[in-house]
Amino acid sequence: MATSARHQIIESLMAPHTENVAEAAIVQWEQLAAQIISIVGESGFNALYARSVFLAQSTFPWLAASSSSPQSDNRFAELRMNLEGQTPAQAIEANRLLLITFTDILASLIGEQLTIRVVRSVWGNDDQTKSQHGVQK
């Protein structure tokens, strides 16, 4: 159930962006990176991200592996390039999978509840999760 809440938050990020998919995705990733780096540092984030890309490559082989030591200012340059090279639908699908994979790994390391807190602090609650939160209260 908790996993599905996390996935719903990610899903809510996808829906509104049918144009400038790559740009929107990069903003989402930068927001997520800022938060994750504050918890596990640059190298921790890079390890998580590289792993996520690797796993997502089996579905989207065109996703390039991140460079060995990505700098903070162009950490997602390759992702941007990859997404821009695809149709919006394909780019959305790949970004969705990448985000879910990333947060799946994070949840396997720090637990689902904490991951959801992190995800909410980055992107805020969608309506549904807000209402769920209200019910819980």
Partner: peptide, 17 residues
């Protein structure tokens, strides 16, 4: 703490690999 977390994340991912 960040460094410790980073090391734990990296070690866990390496273990998964």
């Amino acid at each position: 703490l960040q460094q410790a977390n980073a090391n734990l994340v990296i070690a866990t991912i390496e273990a998964q690999k």
